[in-house]
C-alpha cells in the first residue's frame, strides 16, 4: 500500500477539458469518494489512475514510482467497473483466477486455494463453476469486487460500483464495502454521482465540478461547511439566500434585518440547509426570521417538504410532518433559523 499523489493532472479531449490541473494527495489506507455531477471529470480521473486514459499533462505517483505513462497492466491495481465487466465466456472460478494468472501469482494449486477463500468470503462457495449470466446481479457485483482485490492490489478503484443494484441491495453492499475497507485497510477510490453514497462510505470526499476539485474534506465538514455555492447546492440541496452585509448587520433582499453577522460589507449568500429551517408563528429567542408565504406542501410520511416564498426567493425546507399540520398552501408564517449556524459562500 502506498500514498497516491496527483499533480497538475490535465486531460483534454479535443477542445473539451475533462480534467483541469487537478492536484490531490490521497493518504495510505483512505477511502476516498470522488463526487460530482456527470461530466465533472471524476470518471476521467479514475481512468487516468487506471492507465486507461493518457493524461495530457501532469503526473501520478504511487508511492515512489511515477506511473503517469505506465500501461494499465503494469500498474498492478484493482478496478471494478459499473457494468462489472465479468468475462461472459469464463466460469466464476476462471474470472477470479484471471488476475492471479496474469500477474503470475503462485501455481494452480495456490491459485485454487485463493479462489476458494474468495468464494467463501463472498458467500458463494459451490457456485464457482457457474457462468456470470447464471448468477444474480448482486452476486455478479460481489464476484467483480472479489476479482478486483484477489491479487492484493495497492489501490482499489471503484467506478459507480453500486449503481446497477436496487435500493435495498445497494444499502447492504454499502455496509459490506465499509466492512471490507475496515478489514483489509486497502486504499480505495470510489467514483459516484450519489452524494448519499459518498457521504456514508468515504472518510474523505473529493467534490468535483467542471474538471476541477471544488472542495476536499471529511463528509461532515463538507456538508456543514460548504466552501462554494456549488458545494452547498450539490450536497444536500441547500437553499442559498441572498443577503447584504452592512456594518456587520445582515439584511435579506427585501430589507428585513436578520441580525449581526461577522463578515465584510457587500452582497453574500447564506447557506440554509433544509433541516435548519423551521416554520413558526413567531421566532424563538436568538432566531432570525423572515415573513414567508407557503407555496406548496408535499407529505412524505415522517417528514413533509415545504416550498415557501420569502424575501422574493423560493426556499425549500424539510420539517417533521406534525410541525406543518394546520398550515396549507397560501398561508403565511415566520421562517426561522439560527443565523450563526448558516455558512456564507
Amino acid at each position: 500500500m502506498a500514498q497516491l499523489r496527483i499533480d497538475g493532472l490535465t486531460k483534454r479531449f479535443g477542445a473539451v477539458t475533462a480534467l483541469d490541473a487537478v492536484d490531490l494527495d490521497i493518504p495510505d489506507g483512505a477511502f476516498v469518494a470522488m463526487l460530482g455531477p456527470s461530466g465533472c471529470g471524476k470518471t476521467t480521473l479514475l481512468r487516468c489512475l487506471a492507465g486507461l486514459e493518457r493524461p495530457t499533462s501532469g503526473t501520478i505517483r504511487l508511492g515512489e514510482a511515477d506511473i503517469t505513462t505506465l500501461p494499465p497492466e503494469r500498474r498492478g491495481l484493482g478496478m471494478m467497473f459499473q457494468s462489472y465487466a465479468l468475462f461472459p465466456h469464463m466460469r466464476i472460478r476462471e474470472n477470479l483466477r484471471f488476475p492471479l494468472k496474469m500477474r503470475g501469482r503462485g501455481d494452480a494449486a495456490a491459485q485454487d486455494a485463493k479462489i476458494d477463500e474468495a468464494l467463501r468470503a463472498i458467500r458463494m462457495e459451490g457456485m464457482g463453476d457457474r457462468y456470470p449470466r447464471e448468477i444474480s446481479g448482486g452476486q455478479q457485483q460481489r464476484v467483480a469486487l472479489a476479482r478486483a482485490i484477489i491479487a492484493d492490489p495497492p489501490l482499489l478503484l471503484l467506478d459507480e460500483p453500486l449503481s446497477n443494484l436496487d435500493a435495498q441491495l445497494r444499502k447492504q453492499m454499502q455496509i459490506e464495502l465499509i466492512e471490507l475497507h475496515r478489514r483489509i485497510g486497502l486504499t480505495t477510490i470510489l467514483v459516484t454521482h450519489d452524494q448519499e453514497e459518498a457521504l456514508s462510505l468515504a472518510d474523505l470526499v473529493v467534490l468535483m465540478n467542471a474538471g476541477r476539485i471544488e472542495q476536499i474534506g471529511a463528509p461532515r465538514d463538507i456538508y456543514r461547511k460548504p466552501a462554494t455555492a456549488f458545494a452547498a447546492a450539490f450536497l444536500g440541496g441547500a437553499n442559498l439566500l441572498d443577503v447584504v452585509v452592512e456594518n456587520g448587520l445582515a439584511r435579506a433582499g427585501d430589507g428585513t434585518a436578520l441580525g449581526p453577522l461577522a463578515a465584510p460589507d457587500g452582497p453574500r449568500r447564506l447557506v440554509l440547509r433544509q433541516e435548519a429551517l423551521a416554520l413558526r408563528d413567531a421566532p424563538r429567542p436568538g432566531e432570525a426570521t423572515l415573513a414567508a408565504r407557503i407555496v406548496a406542501v408535499a407529505f412524505n410520511g415522517a417528514t413533509s417538504r415545504v416550498v415557501v416564498e420569502a424575501a422574493g426567493q423560493r426556499l425549500e425546507l424539510t420539517v417533521p410532518a406534525a410541525a406543518i399540520e394546520g398550515r396549507a398552501a397560501g398561508a403565511t408564517a415566520q421562517l426561522c433559523f439560527i443565523l450563526a449556524d448558516a455558512p456564507l459562500v
Binding site: L52, P72, G78, F81, S83, A85, F87, M102, A151, L157
Partner: peptide, 26 residues
C-alpha cells in the same frame, strides 16, 4: 463490451494476452 478488454488490461494482461483470452474467444 469495451470494458471487458479494459478490465483484462487492468488485471495485468497486455494487448496480446487480452486478445487471446478475451477478444478472440468472444
Amino acid at each position: 463490451d469495451p470494458r471487458l478488454e479494459e478490465a483484462a488490461r487492468v488485471m495485468g494482461a497486455n494487448f496480446w494476452t487480452t486478445l487471446r483470452h478475451v477478444v478472440v474467444p468472444l
